[in-house]
Design a protein around this nucleic acid. Structure first.
Lengths: 234, 234
DNA sequence: TGTATTTTTTTTGTCGACAAGAAAATCAGA
DNA sequence: TCTGATTTTCTTGTCGACAAAAAAAATACA
């Protein structure tokens, strides 16, 4: 491990340290640069970022709150393992949130929400064209997160964001299943969703959001040996 | 303010301090013993609990993560205000979670889950009989939380628990609206829900969970001047 | 050689102290 | 008396150091 990586030896603004560490660590975990189960050393991080253990610790506490890292009392701090057993539960929740947030967006969105949503869709489309799986995950999440925000329900939006974040690692598996073959269908589906939202067609948004989410479940279902779906029939 | 309240001057086990402070502070916030908007003083807490600011700080960071307290950079830490504007959003989410968790419980519960659920129901029934609003809120939350847990979806259960916690302050308003008149109807509805779960009648559980939740919305709707409901039609 | 016990090492949890930022208080000048 | 600058105060953010807990290593003994 190269400790010739001072990262940031410059003067930082008071209070910016925790956010710096938190953001970077979170990204490294979600992008699997830090493997699930790998140990986290506070002093190493402190040295790496050129700061005391205190702000490092605060960042870690926050990450624990999000379930991204786990701590055994007095012993070891490690990156949380991916819960493959709870995978179907995860995708159940994800599909429902896809659906609910899309639906609410059709009801409550404002005009300027659409320009932001379209911007994210453009970024997603670009990621698909360039076959960049990591970028696809990120931009897809941003797209749906923007839709959720336009639905004006902070509780759904917060839960959804959390799911998208926590699932970034699982979603890699999903995107890997497409390997080199790109799914341009998703780009089209996003366009349909945007149209339904703009037309304030709640029923269509509901249907499209559900279908969009269920595609993921089906694809994952092909990956997992057995897979119990639980539909919320509408 | 009486600083003749050493609370705990005894030797504590290493690592137990944060949990102590976290639990107590959380309860005090949710029970409105600490008023929304009131300031939180780290040094005062440190003195009160007879410990350094470090563990206090960690507990506060955790509470910030749950949205129960807010911090202005470099200045003041305070109990979060209740978001009355987002109230309809809150109850929308709550109703949906009532429904989804009850439904899943009917599908996935195990035999021993029922004894725990029934125990919580007994406690709730007792709280209703003794007209203890605070106990009613707590036992009702525990009842539904147990149902959610028996549904075997950690994501829904976690989100639901968070809603129940965050809403404990709002729910007070709801229970206050019944003032002295007790709602024994809720006890009966709980019984029906238990029966539906035990019979694994998913449709009935779905219907009962929804209806149970919507009662709250209607009651709150009588309290709020205007109130936009958004149904997820089934 | 294998096992129980002691010692060392490693990592976390806690502490007291200090510095930075921002608000409150004080002061100066008209 | 009012207004703007300056000082003080108060709270937070960060630091380095130390103690406790647990694992790892070393040792003793059969």
């Amino acid at each position: 491990m190269a400790d010739s990586d001072p990262e940031q030896t410059v003067e930082r603004k008071r209070g910016s340290g925790v956010k710096l560490v938190y953001d970077l660590l979170r990204d490294e975990i979600l992008d699997l640069k830090l493997a699930p189960g790998s140990a986290i050393d506070e002093v190493a991080l402190a040295a790496r970022f050129g700061m005391s253990r205190t702000p490092i610790r605060e960042a870690l506490v926050r990450l624990v709150g999000e379930g991204l890292i786990e701590t055994l009392p007095n012993r070891s701090t490690m990156v949380s393992n991916i819960d493959f057993l709870g995978m179907h539960a995860y995708f159940d929740a994800l599909v429902l949130m896809y659906r609910v947030t899309t639906r609410l967006a059709a009801q409550n969105h404002r005009a300027d929400d659409l320009v932001e949503i379209r911007a994210h869709q453009a970024a997603f489309s670009a990621a698909v064209r360039s076959q960049d799986a990591l970028a696809m995950i990120a931009t897809n999440a941003a797209f749906h997160s923007a839709i959720a925000a336009s639905g004006r329900n902070a509780y759904y939006a917060g839960f959804f964001d959390r799911l998208l974040g926590e699932g970034r690692r699982m979603l890699r598996l999903y995107y890997q299943s497409y390997e080199d073959r790109l799914p341009p269908r998703f780009v089209d589906e996003h366009e349909e969703i945007i149209a339904a939202i703009e037309a304030r067609d709640v029923a269509a948004a509901d249907r499209l959001g559900t279908a969009h989410g269920e595609q993921i479940v089906e694809q994952i279902g092909r990956l997992l040996t057995q897979h119990e779906r639980q539909d919320i029939e509408l």
